[in-house]
Simulated assay, not measured.
Amino acid sequence: MLWIPFTLFAAFMQAWRNAFQKQLSQDLGATSVTLARFILAGPIAALYLWGLYYWQPSQPLPHFTDSHTSYVFTAYIVGAALCQIAATALMVRLFQLRNYAVGVGLAKSEAIWAAILGVAFFGTLLSPLGWMGVVIGSLAVGLLSGMRQVTGQVSPKTLLLGVASGLSFALTSLWVREASLLLELDFPFSAAWVLLLVISLQTLLLVSWLGIRDPASLTGLIKRPALTALVSLTSCLGSIGWFSAMSLESVALVKTLGQVEVLFTLLISTYYFKVTLARQDKWGLALIVIAALCVMWA
């Protein structure tokens, strides 16, 4: 049951990361804000992995018995890195098109995508109670993000970006889990290695891209060191929680419980951005609790 506290911690950190990214997106482009998520996360992930080996120095390093497994593992790492970059950039773009909570709500279609793709292509087995939790959680996210009031106002472009972001996040999570399982290391070493490799590749790709195409964006991040550091710190801490939880439990259940992030987002919107909550929020909160209970019992 360790996946439960790891998931709750990850959701809390991710809610703050999204809040800081929203602030940063007011002045910088989507690619720059996406880089802020990873630029300092690599050293933090490396320090976390070093701490694990300092705690248990007898743990082995990753190794593969055949080349095919190493190729598959590499494909998962590259795929997860690229999909997470795309998902984050799409969500930042959502922040610029719609209000904060709706942007997060659209991107949180991740849970239902993870369930569908996991069962169809990754051998995930979900009980009826697990499916119930996934569906109820998706409905709760719609209520909490205010989708009912803005359904007629949301453009097809916004809906497309939201679905694409959720699908990209789901693929990222599924490939991260598969990569962690291939390493066959004790918990939480496999998740920590995958985290370090994914973040390092993402940082390398984004720094290279911006260095060639838009050097001014790198300067923009340097001019906002405090906010950039907060985005990176909360992002890495959240990823430690997500990667650890997904190495223990199926992605669909982890991401359904992780929808409590929307609750944290609403609280941040209320007390940090001074946004007034709508009346239906109490129903959304009740559904989040029901969904969380379903996936924990599943």
Rank of each mutant, 00 (worst) to 15 (best):
W3R: 02
F6Y: 10
L8I: 13
W16G: 08
W16D: 04
S25K: 06
L28R: 00
S32F: 00
F38Y: 15
I39T: 13
I39M: 11
A46V: 14
Y48I: 07
Y48C: 01
W50C: 11
Y53F: 15
Y53I: 11
Y54C: 09
Y54K: 08
W55S: 06
Q56N: 08
P57F: 05
S58V: 13
P62D: 04
F64H: 01
H68T: 15
Y71K: 12
Y71V: 15
V78I: 15
V78C: 07
G79W: 09
G79T: 13
A80H: 10
A89W: 10
V92M: 12
L94C: 03
F95H: 09
Q96C: 08
L97C: 00
R98W: 03
V104N: 12
I112A: 10
I116F: 12
L117R: 02
V119N: 02
V119Y: 02
F122D: 03
F122N: 01
T124H: 11
L125N: 10
L125I: 14
S127I: 05
P128I: 06
M132G: 15
M132P: 00
V134W: 07
V135Y: 03
I136A: 13
G137I: 11
S138N: 03
L139W: 05
L143Y: 04
L144Y: 00
Q149G: 12
Q149V: 04
Q149D: 14
V150R: 11
T151V: 14
T151Y: 13
Q153H: 12
S155F: 07
S168W: 04
S168C: 11
F169N: 04
T172M: 14
T172A: 08
R177F: 09
R177A: 06
A179Y: 02
A179P: 03
L182K: 02
L183Y: 03
E184D: 13
L185E: 01
L185M: 07
D186E: 14
D186P: 00
F189V: 06
S190N: 08
A192M: 11
A192Y: 01
I199H: 02
S200H: 09
L204P: 00
L204I: 15
L205W: 05
S208H: 00
L210I: 09
L210A: 06
D214R: 10
P215K: 03
L221Q: 06
L221T: 04
R224A: 10
P225G: 11
L227Q: 07
T228M: 11
T228W: 09
A229T: 12
L230S: 11
V231T: 07
V231D: 04
L233D: 05
T234H: 05
L237M: 14
L237T: 01
G238K: 03
S239M: 14
S239K: 03
W242A: 04
F243L: 12
A245F: 06
S247K: 01
L248Q: 12
L253G: 00
L253E: 06
K255D: 10
L263K: 00
F264Q: 02
F264D: 01
T265G: 04
L267E: 02
I268M: 10
I268C: 06
S269Y: 00
T270F: 15
K274S: 14
K274R: 14
T276W: 05
T276E: 10
A278K: 10
A278N: 04
D281C: 07
L285M: 15
A286F: 11
C294I: 05
